[in-house]
Design a protein around this nucleic acid. Sequence first.
DNA 1: GGGGGGTTTTGAATCGTTTTAATGCAACCT
DNA 2: AGGTTGCATTAAAACGATTCAAAACCCCCC
Lengths: 335, 335
Amino acid sequence: MPVAQVRDVAALAGVSPATVSNALNHPAKVSPETLARIQAAIDELGYIRNDAARQLRAGTNRAIGMIVLDIANPFFTDVARGVEDVLIDEQRPLILGNSAQEPARETTYLDLFEQQRMSGVLITPVVNVIDRLRRLRDRGTSVVLVDRMSRVKEFSSVSIDDRMGGRIATEHLLEIGRRRIGFIGGPAGLAQVKTRLAAARKAVEQHGSGEILFAETDSMNAQAGRDGIEQLLALPKKQRPDAIFAANDLVALGVLQALTLAGVRVPDDIAIIGYDDIDFAASAAIPLSSVRQPAHQMGSAAASMLLDVIADPAASTVKHLTLKPELVVRRSTSA
Amino acid sequence: MPVAQVRDVAALAGVSPATVSNALNHPAKVSPETLARIQAAIDELGYIRNDAARQLRAGTNRAIGMIVLDIANPFFTDVARGVEDVLIDEQRPLILGNSAQEPARETTYLDLFEQQRMSGVLITPVVNVIDRLRRLRDRGTSVVLVDRMSRVKEFSSVSIDDRMGGRIATEHLLEIGRRRIGFIGGPAGLAQVKTRLAAARKAVEQHGSGEILFAETDSMNAQAGRDGIEQLLALPKKQRPDAIFAANDLVALGVLQALTLAGVRVPDDIAIIGYDDIDFAASAAIPLSSVRQPAHQMGSAAASMLLDVIADPAASTVKHLTLKPELVVRRSTSA
DNA sequence: GGGGGGTTTTGAATCGTTTTAATGCAACCT
DNA sequence: AGGTTGCATTAAAACGATTCAAAACCCCCC
């Protein structure tokens, strides 16, 4: 038994396929009685439209694609939920891809989105993909950058001020009297890492005393935190840090675990501050100080912005929204 | 400038569109020289195939859809990553939908997957959707249930033994001398909740002493944990629980926070055991005992199973793989 | 009764790819 | 030489919806 198509629905309702299509896509054009008859026929046959055919003819896919850096990081799932909450009201499906910070995966998803002729894409890029994004845009797919300002200012973006975040975290550590600050995160090329690290260095410089020790990692999870702190603990005692600025909370939690295991007292011997303020930061063994980012808000703002661009791609005013992070002090830096 | 199509590629390479299509889909059928010429043309034009057209003609979408209960729960993102790791090798995109335990959202995603004629769907259902799944299957979409055994045994599934999990958690609490066990989770209709709760009740019964107090919540996050424990603390002192069995770790962490805030000592006054053993359980303020579930493994097993079904839907042997959970004892139940 | 204006419905063309069956061509066998 | 085999290529017919221009219909007024 083949599945029902518009023509079957049309036959059952006693109208032409064109009318069925109108009923589905432009209900205002169809008289109420006909509409009801068609709806009845649809229900009876269990008709589900073939989206490939629809898309081919209509030339547009309603779905929105999103590529996040790390689906295992609650920060990004918060962002994704912010996006979802906006899109669900618009009846637009969200296709969520996880690049896991791997350029190859990122490319795979970009290919996919391009093949699917998505109407819009939200992306937190791993590497420089401006040319890919440009091509997407030329093909009619709108693009908004998330948590990353385009250097070339060519695409709209929503981001959170990483410079400020890096500064307030570092100033806080300096204020509580720490001078040798270990920065753990990576890879160094990642925009978020680069900016936060640079801001930390600048803060130290302006303060006039102190030092940043950079332990680069190849990803940003708890394991990376454990690896990073190991590097720093391997230093001669005199050179060891008295505070850690972790590039995100997952890393910070890894650091905390490793330090506890090694018998290092937190915050007495080494203070720790994380980044993101994910829910788990507050409930950690030693509640974690962090730089809170309005993740959910960033997600919904990005989604709204994308919908605006989709609605009118010609209105070529590129917008950049920058949200502010906020210092949250907990026990891991209270000394 | 309109985007390049097969016919443009064909013209540039001096062949027919059919040959280009063959080059793309059945490279063995095309001579090496022609292949090279076509590839060159594709690169030169930056040709990206229109997937809607491909799908319409080929009748099949390579993508796999997945619907999870809660994207904010690390357990499910672990499962998703297990799935992803298998699919990426097969060059199959994964479309991830979050039902957030809301039937309406679940339906929205099922509609979407049906419209898209997905080749396969992985789902952890919120409510009974057997008829929807049956329809999907009849339309040619393979289905595998995740973390949920189909009562009707009609679909293959991969799950983790919830009865055993509920039992070992409860027995552990009984062994450390607790008798009044509060079970927090919900909604009560959710299969995982139902099974774990039933197993807990049975364990108490077999033990001959003890009691289960069920505090039902409408979701399974930290907030639910705080709400649930509030219900139980409102009981007259004599009737209050001396242990909590939380239906998952997020709930357990919420309970832990609320108890700490209320000045209740954990585990002395009330012991807590969670479920899932997400990474954050170990690094909680008071490290959380839990029932470890092999999430990543379940994901990859489910994906492999789905690929098998897709490869040969006729081979009608429905398979059920049940993985075993494992008790992990930490400080929250050590007394 | 004919004409005008507005709404509703429809026939036919179309979206861009894959597929099928057929063709062309060269080499090989007897 | 004639016939066969096999490979590479192609023309043309799908796939299932949407769209557009045109037809049909309705109601009302002159």
